[in-house]
Design a protein around this nucleic acid. Structure first.
Lengths: 143, 143
DNA sequence: TATGATTATATCGCACACGACAAAAATAAA
DNA sequence: TTTATTTTTGTCGTGTGCGATATAATCATA
């Protein structure tokens, strides 16, 4: 008897996560355009709106991203005048990131986004929450 | 009374999907290295192992990707000798993609991947299935 | 049967992600 | 206190994703 392959697309975890992630990015696009932010830049801003000030490595940890991704992102955000970078005096290896006034102000423009997205996605709120919780649980394995 | 912000990272859908997707990619990496494939190249192969032969646009639809992403992927896979491209004779706009013998053979090497991944993720199988189903439901909104 | 619109694929440019590696500062160990 | 190791940040190269656009083939319709 020939064994059934486990490589069917429908059975994979890799594929729907990947496709869903990109699809969500597309849904955010029109709103992020209004803010003049790319998707990863928006994620950095989300953290900063919550934390006010942290180091590059703390930011990396929060986002599960490497410095070689975050450093150029921060450069772009600084060029837009949204964040400020300052090398620490106690430990000169670390760099502190904080919002500028302009960066802080952008938050109020972003407040409308979550509700609009939920509407665009058109799925029961309960299911979205479930997805979110399962993924946070997944991510917690890698802290 | 000041209203609560809805921009907390924990409440977003965008962030955990994004981070989870990248994390899953990282988990696949060591096994894909053995096959000499990148992650998106692997996804293309998953479709082809299931379909044998289809057009570029059908492949794009299956993967929720645009041609401008898929075309270079196919070029790479052809360079590796895994797929063949042939312009259709009935409709000369379309290009048919099919596995080479080498591409077909790679499938048996890939069969071990799913089980290894489930083990690496270390989450109840039921929850992984739940995530998968929710995401497929989400994706179906965009067919 | 012209010709304007649509479709299928491809090219180009920009912005990530990330592995490999580099540089500088801090810490630990001999 | 040298010296080796670790930590923090950064640079560089490769491979996607995707918007904008190009090109060629097909279709629709006057």
């Amino acid at each position: 008897m020939k064994e059934k392959s486990h490589l069917l697309l429908k059975e994979q975890l890799c594929f729907p996560i990947y496709a869903t992630s990109r699809m969500v990015t597309r849904l955010y696009q029109p709103w992020l355009d209004k803010l003049g932010l790319t998707y990863p830049q928006y994620l950095v801003m989300l953290v900063l709106w919550e934390e006010q000030k942290l180091t590059v490595s703390q930011l990396c940890k929060r986002l599960y991203l490497n410095t070689n991704t975050v450093t150029p992102l921060l450069k772009k955000l600084r060029d837009k005048g949204l964040v400020a970078k300052e090398r620490s005096t106690e430990d000169e290896r670390t760099v502190h990131i904080e919002l500028t006034q302009k960066g802080d102000k952008l938050k109020s423009q972003a407040e409308e986004i979550p509700a609009n997205l939920v509407e665009a996605i058109d799925m029961p709120l309960e299911e979205l929450k479930q997805m979110r919780e399962l993924m946070w649980k997944f991510l917690s394995k890698f802290d």
